[in-house]
Write a protein that binds this DNA or RNA. Structure first.
Length: 428
RNA sequence: GUGGGUAUAGCUCAGUUGGUUAGAGCACCAGAUUGUGGCUCUGGGGGCCGACGGUUCAAAUCCGUUUAUCCACCCCA
């Protein structure tokens, strides 16, 4: 709320954005800590990159026929006349950054992760925002199915660590490579061309642009037609087929449960071979909590050396929603350990100094900053969950001694007004 | 971009067939014999009833428009 010439107007957060205030940020911190630890256990190092990029990067990287590029990007011209876009997803930026640094000279495999905001001009709904945050992991230089298995294992690992393994299911598919996919596309086109009357308008459009997407249409009529469509798995070339079955064997060996889902089609054009998603069915319509796959062609598409690669993205907001749906809570932050109630202006300096000395020793200490009376300060200390309280008045300062009161039992014992002594008394 | 629901205090919501100065609970602040929290009691601050326009003697209430929000489609994390 701000006052502009007598009229109060409310300025609210832009559509599709969310604030995280201190009473909730501990959840984000705990979530992020779990994600970072998981990534690092798997040998992934953090990468940081800008929030905006040249628009061209996403046009080439994501594919200019995708919905993300066609209608969801925050694109603008900067003062230098460059076309700039707020990053709608992380993979293109990672590839760009690594190419720029000379990917070919890096030790392979190169594994990195990020936790970063993405921006898409969408119509918000449950689990879908215009600014959302993703945990992403990308692995470069590993062609074999072991990399796919390890990446999926990482996703499985952090989801389990977050307590979501029971609420989440893994679906995998292989959409083939530039060798075998055209064969399948042709088969799909042949199939759907004979059924044009039975599918919806957008699917007719998809038939031209990307017939794979028809398989994913939620329209019941289209789904019925799609059910009889040729299966991509039957058209994989022998290399892709071997890759996919080896991946499944490794997942089986690790005991990671999954379903084969021929309907999985990722909406980003760069995927090849393995695609997968973890879905939480307690989550409403936007229930994919982690999705990714292999993108062997992207690095060279963006000007780098031909490099096999794969990765996933996982939405932090959805992870938090999933935990909430399952009734899981995060530990609250440590409460205040000591509250110093100062009485009268003479005590303020003493209280300020004690607070600083004790904070230097690593203690969470608070004191009155609002000029409140003793009773109000005690109430506030209680609200903070303070474990101890010291009342500092002229008397105590003159005697250099005060009572250290335990808030849970109410008992108080004398304690000298010395940071060291107070610290010892609290930590004994 | 398409469709539906909802807009009253910081939060959760009441508000009778249109009728005086718009309510409760929680939260916040201050008191209940001068320096000690939780329980209880009392009091207080805080809303132009989302915004604009219309009908009416009279609108939080009826009508229209708009904005926001929620949910679904599309797409995605």
């Amino acid at each position: 709320m701000m006052d502009t010439g007598g009229k109060k107007i409310k300025i609210q957060a832009p559509k599709g954005t969310k604030d995280v205030l201190p009473d909730e940020s501990y959840k984000w911190q705990a979530l992020e800590a779990a994600l970072r630890e998981s990534a690092e256990l798997f040998g992934y190092g953090e990468i940081r990159f800008p929030v905006f990029e040249h628009t061209e990067l996403f046009l080439r990287g994501i594919g200019d026929t995708t919905d993300v590029v066609q209608k969801e990007m925050y694109t603008f011209e900067d003062k230098g006349g460059r076309s700039i876009t707020l990053r709608p997803e992380g993979t293109a930026s990672v590839v760009r950054a690594l190419n720029e640094r000379g990917l070919a000279s890096q030790a392979m495999p190169l594994k990195c992760y990020y936790i970063a905001p993405n921006f898409r001009y969408e119509k918000p709904q449950a689990g879908r925002l215009r600014q959302h945050h993703q945990f992403g992991a990308e692995c470069f230089g590993a062609e074999g199915p072991g990399a796919d298995a390890e990446l999926i294992a990482l996703a499985w690992f952090f989801l389990k660590r977050l307590g979501l393994s029971d609420g989440v299911a893994l679906n995998i598919n292989s959409i083939g490579c530039p060798e075998c996919r055209p064969v399948y596309h042709t088969a799909l086109r042949d199939y759907f061309s004979g059924k044009k009357a039975e599918v919806c308008g957008t699917c007719l459009d998809r038939l031209e642009r990307n017939p794979l997407r028809i398989l994913d249409c939620k329209n019941p009529d289209c789904a019925a037609v799609a059910a009889g469509a040729p299966k991509g798995i039957d058209y994989l070339c022998s290399e892709c087929d071997t890759h996919f079955s080896s991946l499944r064997a490794e997942l089986d060996a690790m005991g990671i449960p999954y379903e084969l889902d021929p309907m999985i089609v990722r909406g980003l054009d760069y995927y090849t071979r393995t695609v997968f998603e973890f879905v939480c069915d307690r989550l409403g319509a936007q229930k994919t909590v982690c999705g990714g796959g292999r993108y062997d062609g992207l690095v060279s598409e963006l000007g780098g050396p031909p490099t096999p690669a794969l990765g996933f993205g996982s939405g932090l907001e959805r992870l938090l929603l999933a935990r909430e749906a399952l009734g899981l809570e995060f530990d609250r932050p440590e409460p205040c350990e000591l509250y110093i109630a100062a009485l009268g202006p003479g005590a303020d300096g003493e209280a300020a100094a004690l607070c600083l000395r004790l904070r230097e020793r690593g203690l969470r200490v608070e004191r009155d900053l609002c000029g409140r009376g003793l009773k109000a300060q005690m109430k506030y200390a209680d609200k903070l969950g303070a474990k101890y309280v010291i009342v500092l008045g002229d008397d105590e300062i003159a005697r250099r001694e005060a009572y250290l009161k335990r808030m849970d039992t109410g008992e108080a014992s004398p304690c000298g007004l010395d940071a060291g002594e107070i610290y010892e008394a609290i930590n004994k």
